[in-house]
Computed example of a mutant assay.
Amino acid sequence: MEKIILDCDPGHDDAIAILLAAGNPTIDLLGITTVAGNQTIEKVTRNALAVCAAYGIEVPVARGAERPLVIPQMVADFVHGETGLDGPDLPPATFELDRRHAVDFIIDTVMSHEPKTVNLVPTGPFTNIALAIRKEPRIVERVKSVTVMGGAHTRGNITPGAEFNIYVDPEAAEAVFRADWDVTMVGLDLTHQALATSELQDRVRAVGGPISKFVLDLWAFIGSTYESNWEFAAPPVHDACCVAALIDPAVFTVAKADVRVELHGEWTKGMTVVNFQDAPGMHHDAGSAAKQTDFRTNVAMTLEWPRFADQIVDALTYLTEK
């Protein structure tokens, strides 16, 4: 069983990630921490609490960073709407927040468990994780893995070169990629393969019940957004891919790379610069720049979509029948 802390900014795909983590018996969801990103910290925290309250997910929820480390805050209301979770009707957020700040919750949880047993899963901006590293550097050697939704090696979605989670707090992202721990980058190149196709939606509809309706309402809203803004035939389920990999690592392939975040470029700020270990023409022993290359990030490459779809359906079925 994999122990995880889901650090998120719900967000439609974050909500699916919560349901997948809570609905798979091989995942021990230790807690949910929130970070400003898709919407303000107040709104994403309310959304996390509401999803947990609606579907009986009894885990601690801790509110985290309300702004990036350095740059001004930016939210994705143009994608996720005014609430951050537009589309479905959710009940009031009746669960109480954990009294700790998300950064302290992360530190306390990692330090109180055996070394190399807690996985961090940031699916929003990486602000909380970077702050936790700064406040308690010992977590780096104790964390088992960090599986992040962010970045890409071929494209952006908020600018031509940058993915949203990295762009809105690039300094935090660079801190996470540079820390000496096991990082897997689940970027747009992978998540754009994880589409909520009509086939998957039909399977979810067949599950029935309020959770099925909630997920279909999520996809209806975000699907129209992706169709109008980016001409997608079906919406990507970005964040759930990170949880899916901890359920079954075979759900996608990875390639080793050195990942750096561009912090200063006028046109490329927030871009993840990905140097693959097996890139043709690279001479890793030639020159000082090559010697400083650090091929330790796993970059997600190709998705086994049927495995992923099965995980989503199985989790929703489990939660519905529970």
Rank of each mutant, 00 (worst) to 15 (best):
M149P: 06
L120P: 12
V110K: 09
D202W: 03
V148R: 07
T147H: 08
L195A: 04
A175R: 15
I222R: 10
T154W: 11
D189R: 10
M149N: 11
F214T: 01
S198I: 08
E199I: 12
V215I: 02
L195N: 01
V168Y: 11
I211N: 02
V146D: 01
N157C: 02
E174T: 05
A172I: 06
K213R: 15
G150K: 07
A233E: 15
P125D: 00
R205H: 00
N119W: 00
V140S: 00
G150F: 03
P115S: 00
P122G: 02
E227A: 15
R142N: 07
F232L: 14
F214E: 00
I211S: 01
V110N: 00
H192Q: 09
I158A: 12
P170F: 00
Q193T: 07
P170S: 02
T225D: 08
N119T: 01
H113F: 05
L190A: 05
V176K: 06
G208S: 12
G161N: 13
V140H: 02
H113N: 11
A233W: 13
V207T: 08
M111Q: 15
L131Q: 14
M111E: 15
P210M: 07
P137L: 00
V168I: 15
A152K: 07
I133E: 09
A173Y: 07
F214I: 02
T197D: 09
E141R: 04
T147Q: 05
W181Y: 05
M185F: 08
F232W: 10
I222F: 14
L195R: 08
D180Q: 14
K116I: 03
E174F: 06
R134F: 02
G209W: 09
G223N: 11
G187L: 12
V121P: 10
S212T: 11
G223I: 07
A130D: 01
A179C: 14
V121S: 05
P170E: 01
S224Q: 13
H113V: 01
S145W: 00
T184L: 04
A162I: 07
V215F: 00
F164C: 10
T225M: 13
P170L: 03
R155S: 09
Y226G: 07
N229P: 11
K116S: 13
G151P: 12
I222E: 12
P160Q: 11
L195T: 01
V183I: 10
T123W: 06
S212N: 04
S224K: 15
R155W: 06
A175I: 14
G156F: 04
P125G: 00
Q201N: 09
D189G: 03
R203Q: 02
M111W: 10
Q201L: 04
G156L: 06
P235Y: 05
A175N: 15
M185Q: 12
S198G: 13
P115R: 04
K135V: 01
T117P: 13
F126N: 04
S224L: 14
N229H: 15
A206T: 08
A220I: 06
P170Q: 05
N157W: 05
V118R: 03
T123F: 11
D180Y: 13
V118C: 06
G151A: 08
T197S: 09
A132F: 03
V183W: 01
L200N: 00
L216I: 11
A172H: 11
T147S: 05
M111S: 14
N128Y: 09
T197K: 03
V118Q: 02
